[in-house]
C-alpha cells in the first residue's frame, strides 16, 4: 500500500514550516483563552477543598504541568526514535524543540509540588519519595539530552547519539505514572484516573480539565515556534529559506 501524500509532506521542512506558521496563532489563542478562563475559574470560582482549604488550588497547575512535561518527553523520545530509525531530520528537529519546553514544565511541576507539600505534608522535599525522585529524574533526562547534544559539534552525530538517550529514558515515564500506586508514597493517589472515576465534583473537575487543555495547547504553540527556529537553523543554506528571508527583508 503506498503511503498517503500528507505522510510524505510531514517530512518536508518547507511544508511543516508553513503549516506551523498557519496553525501557530490559532493554537496560541486557544491556549491563552483556556488558561485565562481556567485560571480564573480555578482561583476565584471553584469552591475550597473541605480538607485542604484554599491551598488545594495548586491542583489546577501542578498535575497539568507534570502531565505536559511527561507528554513532552514521550513526544521527544518518539520523534528522536523516528529520526534515528528512518533518518528523518525533521523528526530530530521536533525532538530538540520539545526538550527545553518539557524541561521547564517538569521544573514547574517539581516547584509547585514542593510548595504544595509544605502545608500539606509538612515538608518541601522528601528524599526517597518515589514520585518525587522519578519526576526529578525526568528533569535530568531532559537536561542530559540537551547537554549531550551540546557536546557534539556535528549536528547529525548529536541527533543520533542523543536519540538513543531519549529512547532509553522513556522507561521512566510509566514508572512516574504508576509510582503512586506501586509504592507507598507521601504523594496523593491519582485524581482523574482514581478507582471509581474522578475523585472530584464537577465544579472542580471542569476547571481542572480546562487547565489541562490550556497547558497542552500552550505547549504545542511553544513547540511550533521552536520548531520553526530549528527548521530555519538547519535549512539555512537551502533555496526556500533564502527566499523566505529575502521576502521578510524586503
Amino acid at each position: 500500500m503506498p503511503l498517503p501524500r500528507w505522510f510524505h509532506l510531514l517530512g518536508s521542512p518547507p511544508f511543516v514550516y508553513r503549516l506551523a506558521s498557519k496553525l501557530g496563532p490559532w493554537i496560541c489563542a486557544a491556549g491563552c483563552l483556556l488558561l485565562a478562563v481556567g485560571g480564573y475559574w480555578a482561583l476565584a470560582v471553584a469552591p475550597p477543598d473541605y480538607q485542604q482549604g484554599e491551598v488545594y488550588r495548586i491542583i489546577y497547575i501542578h498535575p497539568q504541568t507534570a502531565y505536559v512535561g511527561t507528554m513532552a518527553y514521550v513526544l521527544m523520545a518518539v520523534a528522536a526514535g523516528i529520526g534515528f530509525v528512518w533518518r528523518i531530520k525533521l523528526a530530530h528537529a521536533v525532538a530538540v524543540s520539545a526538550a527545553p519546553i518539557g524541561a521547564s514544565f517538569t521544573f514547574c511541576a517539581l516547584v509547585t509540588g514542593s510548595i504544595w507539600g509544605r502545608p500539606t505534608w509538612g515538608t518541601f522535599w522528601a528524599w526517597g519519595d518515589p514520585r518525587i525522585m522519578f519526576e526529578t529524574l525526568l528533569l535530568f533526562l531532559f537536561l542530559g539530552y540537551l547537554m549531550l547534544r551540546a557536546a557534539f559539534d556535528d549536528r547529525d552525530k548529536a541527533d543520533r547519539v542523543s536519540a538513543i538517550l531519549a529512547v532509553v529514558g522513556i522507561v521512566n515515564v510509566p514508572i512516574i505514572h504508576y509510582s503512586v500506586i506501586w509504592w507507598n508514597t507521601l504523594h496523593q493517589g491519582p485524581t482523574l484516573f482514581a478507582e471509581g472515576g474522578p475523585a472530584m465534583t464537577n465544579d472542580m473537575l471542569v476547571p481542572f480539565l480546562i487547565m489541562f487543555a490550556g497547558f497542552t495547547f500552550f505547549f504545542y504553540w511553544l513547540l511550533l515556534t521552536r520548531l520553526k527556529g530549528e527548521i530555519v537553523e538547519r535549512e539555512r543554506a537551502t533555496r526556500w529559506i533564502r527566499e523566505l528571508v529575502a521576502g521578510s527583508r524586503a
Binding site: I61, F218, L222, T225, L244
Partner: peptide
C-alpha cells in the same frame, strides 16, 4: 503558597515564549 506557585508557573510560561521567539528570530537573522 498559592500565589508563589501560580506566579512561578506564569513566569516559566512567559520565559518560554521569549526563548522560543528569540530562537526563531535568531535563526532567521543568521
Amino acid at each position: 503558597y498559592v500565589w508563589t506557585a501560580y506566579g512561578i508557573t506564569l513566569l516559566v510560561l512567559v520565559l518560554n515564549v521569549a526563548a522560543a521567539r528569540r530562537r526563531h528570530r535568531g535563526a532567521l537573522r543568521r
